[in-house]
Amino acid sequence: MLDHETMVTLGKMGAAAALGLGALGSALGCGTAGMSAITVWKKAYAQGKSALFTLLVFVGAPISQTIYGMLLMNFILGAANAENFNNWAACLGAGIFGGLGMMASAWFQGKAGAVACDALGETGKGMVNYLIVLGVVETVALFVMVFATQTFA
């Protein structure tokens, strides 16, 4: 049997995992899409064309998973700081697996954003279609955040 302080510490580790893994995914996703946007801008400048500022929408899209990680972190911290707290495993599991789900969503949203940068830069068409794809990938992170909080219900 674990003492109360150890259980709280393990629960708070779940909170840190939720934020850290969500932020890791955001960094990977934004970085991936950003590299593509820079390539598209370089090609535009080399051809004497203006750069598409709208590519920043694709670059910034994965950052929201950090916010979802923070929201899940706050929910876990609320549970871990409760006076009668004893569900450290749920907190740790929700933080790790919820964080991994958000990380994957952000990373692959960035990959989709990278391809969207290339496609929009090449054709100048399809912005709405590309945003819809990013929205579908984003929805995975929203589902993970909401459903991970149900671990405590």
Rank of each mutant, 00 (worst) to 15 (best):
I96D: 02
F143P: 04
A153Q: 09
S105K: 14
A106Q: 07
A23R: 00
N129H: 08
V128R: 15
A44R: 15
G78D: 01
A80N: 07
T39K: 15
L28C: 01
A106S: 13
G110E: 00
T54W: 09
G11W: 02
M145A: 09
N87R: 15
K111D: 00
M35K: 15
M103H: 06
M73W: 07
L21G: 11
A141G: 06
T149L: 05
A116M: 05
P62A: 08
L10D: 03
I96F: 08
G110R: 03
L56N: 14
V144K: 02
S50F: 13
V140M: 12
V144P: 01
G69C: 07
V128H: 12
G98C: 05
G11E: 04
V146H: 11
G126E: 02
W41R: 11
L24K: 13
Y45M: 06
V144S: 03
G99W: 05
D3H: 15
A104Y: 09
H4F: 10
G22K: 15
V115F: 12
G95M: 09
A33D: 00
A16I: 12
T6V: 14
G34S: 08
G93N: 05
N87F: 14
L100A: 09
G11L: 06
M1R: 15
S26N: 10
Y130R: 11
V146N: 09
D3P: 08
M1D: 09
I38C: 07
I76S: 04
G113Y: 06
A80W: 01
S64C: 06
A148M: 08
L10C: 08
N129M: 03
L92K: 14
W41C: 03
L77G: 07
M127H: 15
M73V: 07
V133K: 01
D118P: 01
F143A: 14
W88N: 06
Q109M: 10
P62R: 07
L24R: 14
F152E: 00
G126Y: 13
D3S: 12
G11M: 11
M102L: 07
E122V: 10
C30Y: 06
E5H: 13
V40G: 05
S26H: 01
G60W: 03
S64T: 14
F152A: 03
L77I: 08
G98E: 02
Q150N: 09
I76T: 13
F147E: 00
L72D: 00
L56M: 12
M103A: 07
Q47G: 07
Y68M: 03
V137T: 03
G69W: 04
V140E: 04
L77R: 10
A141C: 10
N86P: 10
G135S: 12
A27R: 00
N81G: 07
L28M: 05
G98I: 01
M73C: 11
A17K: 15
A153L: 05
K125A: 09
F75V: 02
L120H: 14
G135L: 05
F97W: 15
E5Q: 14
I67Q: 09
I67N: 08
A23M: 01
L55S: 00
A46Y: 10
Q47S: 13
A114Q: 04
T54R: 15
C30K: 02
N81K: 12
E83W: 11
I63E: 11
T66R: 05
T6L: 13
K12G: 04
I67C: 09
T66G: 05
G31C: 10
K125F: 11
D118K: 00
V115L: 04
I67A: 13
K12D: 02
I96M: 04
T139S: 12
V8Q: 13
V137Y: 00
G29M: 02
